[in-house]
Amino acid sequence: MPRPTSERAHTEWMVTPVGAGPVTRRVVLGIVAILTLLFLIAPLALIFSSALSQGIGTFFNSLTEPGTQHAILLTVTTALIAVPINIVFGLAAAWTVTKFVFPGRTLLISLIELPYSISPIVAGVAYIFVYGSQGLFGPLIEAMGIKVMFALPAIVLASMFVTAPFVARELIPLMQVQGTDEEEAAVTLGASGFATFMRVTLPNVRWAVLYGAILCNARVMGEFGAVSVVSGNIRGQTTTLPLQIELLYQDYNVAGAFAAATVLTAVALLTIVIKVVLERISPDHAQAPARPPGH
Protein backbone atom coordinates (compact mmCIF):
# COMPACT_ATOMS: atom_id res chain seq x y z
CA MET A 1 0.00 0.00 0.00
CA PRO A 2 2.10 2.86 -1.24
CA ARG A 3 -0.19 5.68 -0.26
CA PRO A 4 -0.28 5.32 3.56
CA THR A 5 3.46 4.72 3.61
CA SER A 6 4.16 7.87 1.74
CA GLU A 7 1.76 9.73 4.05
CA ARG A 8 3.57 8.41 7.10
CA ALA A 9 6.88 9.40 5.63
CA HIS A 10 5.43 12.79 4.95
CA THR A 11 4.28 13.23 8.57
CA GLU A 12 7.62 12.11 9.92
CA TRP A 13 9.34 14.58 7.70
CA MET A 14 7.01 17.23 9.11
CA VAL A 15 7.90 16.61 12.75
CA THR A 16 11.59 16.11 12.06
CA PRO A 17 13.07 19.32 10.74
CA VAL A 18 16.30 19.22 8.80
CA GLY A 19 19.25 18.18 10.95
CA ALA A 20 17.15 17.08 13.92
CA GLY A 21 17.60 13.35 13.79
CA PRO A 22 16.80 10.90 16.60
CA VAL A 23 20.16 11.59 18.27
CA THR A 24 19.63 15.33 18.39
CA ARG A 25 16.11 14.78 19.70
CA ARG A 26 17.38 12.56 22.49
CA VAL A 27 20.13 15.00 23.43
CA VAL A 28 17.69 17.89 23.56
CA LEU A 29 15.22 15.84 25.58
CA GLY A 30 18.02 14.82 27.94
CA ILE A 31 19.11 18.43 28.46
CA VAL A 32 15.53 19.48 29.22
CA ALA A 33 15.11 16.59 31.64
CA ILE A 34 18.34 17.40 33.47
CA LEU A 35 17.56 21.10 33.66
CA THR A 36 14.06 20.36 34.97
CA LEU A 37 15.56 18.12 37.60
CA LEU A 38 18.17 20.70 38.64
CA PHE A 39 16.05 23.83 38.54
CA LEU A 40 12.58 22.58 39.47
CA ILE A 41 12.42 19.16 41.06
CA ALA A 42 15.55 19.29 43.24
CA PRO A 43 14.65 22.60 44.99
CA LEU A 44 11.03 21.46 45.47
CA ALA A 45 12.14 18.16 46.95
CA LEU A 46 14.59 19.99 49.18
CA ILE A 47 11.85 22.24 50.57
CA PHE A 48 9.83 19.26 51.73
CA SER A 49 12.80 17.26 53.01
CA SER A 50 14.24 20.26 54.94
CA ALA A 51 10.84 21.03 56.44
CA LEU A 52 10.57 17.48 57.70
CA SER A 53 14.26 17.16 58.62
CA GLN A 54 13.57 17.59 62.33
CA GLY A 55 10.57 15.32 62.40
CA ILE A 56 6.89 15.67 61.70
CA GLY A 57 6.26 17.09 65.20
CA THR A 58 8.61 20.05 64.65
CA PHE A 59 7.00 20.55 61.26
CA PHE A 60 3.52 20.97 62.73
CA ASN A 61 4.81 23.01 65.67
CA SER A 62 6.43 25.39 63.20
CA LEU A 63 3.17 25.77 61.33
CA THR A 64 1.16 26.48 64.45
CA GLU A 65 3.64 29.03 65.76
CA PRO A 66 1.62 32.31 66.23
CA GLY A 67 3.77 34.36 63.83
CA THR A 68 3.37 31.83 61.03
CA GLN A 69 -0.35 31.39 61.80
CA HIS A 70 -0.86 35.12 61.52
CA ALA A 71 1.15 35.23 58.32
CA ILE A 72 -1.08 32.55 56.80
CA LEU A 73 -4.21 34.42 57.94
CA LEU A 74 -2.92 37.72 56.54
CA THR A 75 -1.98 36.10 53.23
CA VAL A 76 -5.42 34.49 52.91
CA THR A 77 -7.15 37.78 53.84
CA THR A 78 -5.11 39.62 51.23
CA ALA A 79 -6.07 37.06 48.60
CA LEU A 80 -9.76 37.21 49.61
CA ILE A 81 -9.76 40.95 48.98
CA ALA A 82 -7.37 41.26 46.05
CA VAL A 83 -8.63 38.37 43.91
CA PRO A 84 -12.35 39.41 43.77
CA ILE A 85 -11.40 43.00 42.99
CA ASN A 86 -9.10 41.76 40.25
CA ILE A 87 -11.93 39.63 38.85
CA VAL A 88 -14.20 42.67 38.65
CA PHE A 89 -11.40 44.75 37.16
CA GLY A 90 -10.46 42.03 34.70
CA LEU A 91 -14.06 41.56 33.55
CA ALA A 92 -14.61 45.28 33.17
CA ALA A 93 -11.32 45.78 31.35
CA ALA A 94 -11.82 42.83 28.99
CA TRP A 95 -15.45 43.87 28.33
CA THR A 96 -14.36 47.39 27.51
CA VAL A 97 -11.56 46.54 25.13
CA THR A 98 -13.29 43.68 23.31
CA LYS A 99 -16.89 44.81 22.97
CA PHE A 100 -16.27 48.46 22.13
CA VAL A 101 -14.03 50.29 19.75
CA PHE A 102 -12.65 53.60 20.97
CA PRO A 103 -9.51 55.67 20.57
CA GLY A 104 -6.68 54.62 22.89
CA ARG A 105 -7.93 51.02 23.05
CA THR A 106 -4.56 49.49 22.19
CA LEU A 107 -2.88 51.77 24.70
CA LEU A 108 -5.31 50.58 27.39
CA ILE A 109 -4.50 46.94 26.60
CA SER A 110 -0.78 47.70 26.90
CA LEU A 111 -1.35 49.48 30.20
CA ILE A 112 -3.26 46.54 31.63
CA GLU A 113 -0.30 44.32 30.80
CA LEU A 114 2.31 46.69 32.20
CA PRO A 115 2.60 44.90 35.59
CA TYR A 116 3.78 41.79 33.73
CA SER A 117 6.94 43.54 32.68
CA ILE A 118 7.57 45.84 35.64
CA SER A 119 9.69 44.71 38.59
CA PRO A 120 7.52 44.29 41.72
CA ILE A 121 9.95 46.35 43.78
CA VAL A 122 9.29 49.30 41.47
CA ALA A 123 5.58 48.90 42.18
CA GLY A 124 6.26 48.93 45.92
CA VAL A 125 8.45 52.01 45.81
CA ALA A 126 5.94 53.75 43.53
CA TYR A 127 3.19 53.16 46.10
CA ILE A 128 5.42 54.71 48.77
CA PHE A 129 5.87 57.78 46.60
CA VAL A 130 2.12 58.06 46.13
CA TYR A 131 0.70 57.05 49.52
CA GLY A 132 3.68 57.46 51.91
CA SER A 133 3.70 60.25 54.51
CA GLN A 134 5.98 62.30 52.30
CA GLY A 135 4.30 61.15 49.11
CA LEU A 136 1.80 62.67 46.73
CA PHE A 137 -1.49 61.86 48.52
CA GLY A 138 0.05 60.73 51.83
CA PRO A 139 -0.59 63.92 53.82
CA LEU A 140 -4.20 64.09 52.56
CA ILE A 141 -4.89 60.47 53.45
CA GLU A 142 -3.33 60.95 56.87
CA ALA A 143 -5.45 64.03 57.49
CA MET A 144 -8.50 61.87 56.80
CA GLY A 145 -7.29 59.46 59.47
CA ILE A 146 -6.85 56.53 57.08
CA LYS A 147 -3.81 54.32 57.30
CA VAL A 148 -2.70 52.93 53.96
CA MET A 149 1.05 52.37 54.05
CA PHE A 150 2.62 49.68 56.25
CA ALA A 151 -0.78 48.11 56.89
CA LEU A 152 -3.25 45.74 55.20
CA PRO A 153 -4.45 48.28 52.58
CA ALA A 154 -0.92 48.76 51.24
CA ILE A 155 -0.32 45.01 51.10
CA VAL A 156 -3.59 44.53 49.19
CA LEU A 157 -2.83 47.43 46.82
CA ALA A 158 0.66 46.15 46.05
CA SER A 159 -0.67 42.63 45.44
CA MET A 160 -3.41 43.98 43.18
CA PHE A 161 -0.95 46.00 41.14
CA VAL A 162 1.25 42.99 40.52
CA THR A 163 -1.68 40.74 39.54
CA ALA A 164 -3.78 43.30 37.64
CA PRO A 165 -3.40 41.63 34.22
CA PHE A 166 -4.08 38.05 35.32
CA VAL A 167 -7.86 37.87 34.80
CA ALA A 168 -8.03 40.40 31.96
CA ARG A 169 -5.29 38.60 30.03
CA GLU A 170 -7.27 35.33 30.12
CA LEU A 171 -10.48 37.01 29.04
CA ILE A 172 -9.41 39.35 26.26
CA PRO A 173 -8.45 36.73 23.60
CA LEU A 174 -11.52 34.63 24.42
CA MET A 175 -13.96 37.53 24.28
CA GLN A 176 -12.40 38.71 21.05
CA VAL A 177 -13.04 35.35 19.44
CA GLN A 178 -16.60 35.25 20.72
CA GLY A 179 -17.30 38.64 19.22
CA THR A 180 -20.45 40.62 19.95
CA ASP A 181 -23.01 38.58 18.00
CA GLU A 182 -24.66 36.95 21.00
CA GLU A 183 -24.82 40.21 22.93
CA GLU A 184 -26.35 41.93 19.92
CA ALA A 185 -28.94 39.18 19.68
CA ALA A 186 -29.79 39.56 23.36
CA VAL A 187 -30.14 43.32 23.08
CA THR A 188 -32.31 42.93 19.97
CA LEU A 189 -34.56 40.61 21.95
CA GLY A 190 -34.98 43.36 24.52
CA ALA A 191 -32.52 42.38 27.27
CA SER A 192 -31.07 45.19 29.36
CA GLY A 193 -27.32 45.79 29.41
CA PHE A 194 -26.95 44.19 32.82
CA ALA A 195 -29.07 41.19 31.88
CA THR A 196 -27.03 40.75 28.72
CA PHE A 197 -23.84 40.73 30.74
CA MET A 198 -25.16 38.36 33.41
CA ARG A 199 -26.91 35.92 31.07
CA VAL A 200 -24.81 36.01 27.92
CA THR A 201 -21.33 37.38 28.42
CA LEU A 202 -20.51 36.01 31.86
CA PRO A 203 -21.63 32.39 31.24
CA ASN A 204 -19.55 32.39 28.06
CA VAL A 205 -16.36 33.29 29.89
CA ARG A 206 -16.90 31.71 33.30
CA TRP A 207 -14.15 29.12 32.92
CA ALA A 208 -11.63 31.70 31.80
CA VAL A 209 -12.56 33.89 34.77
CA LEU A 210 -12.00 30.99 37.13
CA TYR A 211 -8.73 30.09 35.42
CA GLY A 212 -7.46 33.68 35.71
CA ALA A 213 -8.60 33.91 39.31
CA ILE A 214 -6.69 30.75 40.27
CA LEU A 215 -3.46 32.05 38.74
CA CYS A 216 -4.07 35.47 40.30
CA ASN A 217 -4.59 33.87 43.69
CA ALA A 218 -1.34 31.93 43.51
CA ARG A 219 0.58 35.06 42.60
CA VAL A 220 -1.06 37.18 45.33
CA MET A 221 -0.16 34.59 47.96
CA GLY A 222 3.42 34.34 46.75
CA GLU A 223 4.22 37.99 46.09
CA PHE A 224 7.37 39.09 47.93
CA GLY A 225 9.07 42.14 46.39
CA ALA A 226 6.26 44.69 46.23
CA VAL A 227 4.79 43.61 49.56
CA SER A 228 8.19 43.69 51.26
CA VAL A 229 8.56 47.39 50.48
CA VAL A 230 5.13 48.48 51.71
CA SER A 231 4.55 46.11 54.64
CA GLY A 232 6.87 47.63 57.26
CA ASN A 233 7.77 44.06 58.32
CA ILE A 234 6.02 44.22 61.68
CA ARG A 235 6.23 40.73 63.14
CA GLY A 236 2.88 39.07 63.64
CA GLN A 237 1.15 42.12 62.14
CA THR A 238 2.16 42.85 58.56
CA THR A 239 4.34 39.91 57.59
CA THR A 240 2.73 37.86 54.84
CA LEU A 241 3.76 34.26 54.34
CA PRO A 242 6.64 34.98 51.91
CA LEU A 243 8.01 37.65 54.28
CA GLN A 244 7.62 35.30 57.23
CA ILE A 245 9.69 32.69 55.40
CA GLU A 246 12.56 35.15 54.94
CA LEU A 247 12.26 36.28 58.55
CA LEU A 248 12.39 32.75 59.95
CA TYR A 249 15.31 31.88 57.69
CA GLN A 250 17.30 34.87 58.93
CA ASP A 251 16.40 33.95 62.51
CA TYR A 252 18.35 30.71 61.90
CA ASN A 253 15.01 28.87 62.13
CA VAL A 254 15.55 26.83 58.99
CA ALA A 255 12.98 24.13 59.83
CA GLY A 256 10.35 26.82 60.51
CA ALA A 257 11.17 28.65 57.29
CA PHE A 258 10.88 25.52 55.20
CA ALA A 259 7.68 24.46 56.96
CA ALA A 260 6.14 27.81 56.02
CA ALA A 261 7.55 27.36 52.52
CA THR A 262 5.72 24.05 52.15
CA VAL A 263 2.42 25.91 52.59
CA LEU A 264 3.20 28.18 49.65
CA THR A 265 4.52 25.27 47.64
CA ALA A 266 1.32 23.32 48.35
CA VAL A 267 -0.71 26.30 47.10
CA ALA A 268 1.38 26.31 43.93
CA LEU A 269 0.99 22.58 43.33
CA LEU A 270 -2.73 22.81 44.01
CA THR A 271 -2.91 25.65 41.51
CA ILE A 272 -1.32 23.46 38.85
CA VAL A 273 -3.76 20.63 39.57
CA ILE A 274 -6.79 22.95 39.38
CA LYS A 275 -5.37 24.51 36.22
CA VAL A 276 -5.04 21.12 34.54
CA VAL A 277 -8.53 20.07 35.65
CA LEU A 278 -10.01 23.34 34.37
CA GLU A 279 -8.29 22.93 31.03
CA ARG A 280 -9.80 19.46 30.73
CA ILE A 281 -13.38 20.33 31.65
CA SER A 282 -13.70 23.78 30.12
CA PRO A 283 -14.70 23.72 26.46
CA ASP A 284 -14.17 27.48 26.20
CA HIS A 285 -10.62 27.44 27.27
CA ALA A 286 -9.64 24.53 25.10
CA GLN A 287 -11.07 26.29 22.07
CA ALA A 288 -9.67 29.69 22.82
CA PRO A 289 -6.76 30.21 20.48
CA ALA A 290 -3.87 31.98 22.10
CA ARG A 291 -4.15 34.99 19.85
CA PRO A 292 -2.40 38.15 20.84
CA PRO A 293 -4.81 40.98 21.63
CA GLY A 294 -5.53 43.37 18.81
CA HIS A 295 -6.24 40.67 16.19
Partner: peptide, 15 residues
Protein backbone atom coordinates in the same frame (compact mmCIF):
# COMPACT_ATOMS: atom_id res chain seq x y z
CA UNK B 1 -17.65 38.24 49.06
CA UNK B 2 -16.60 41.54 47.55
CA UNK B 3 -18.58 43.49 50.14
CA UNK B 4 -16.98 41.43 52.91
CA UNK B 5 -13.58 42.14 51.43
CA UNK B 6 -14.20 45.86 51.34
CA UNK B 7 -15.51 45.62 54.87
CA UNK B 8 -12.23 44.19 56.08
CA UNK B 9 -10.40 46.87 54.16
CA UNK B 10 -12.50 49.58 55.78
CA UNK B 11 -11.90 48.25 59.28
CA UNK B 12 -8.14 48.25 58.80
CA UNK B 13 -7.70 51.78 60.20
CA UNK B 14 -9.62 50.65 63.27
CA UNK B 15 -6.79 48.25 64.04
Amino acid sequence: ALAAGLGILATAPAQ
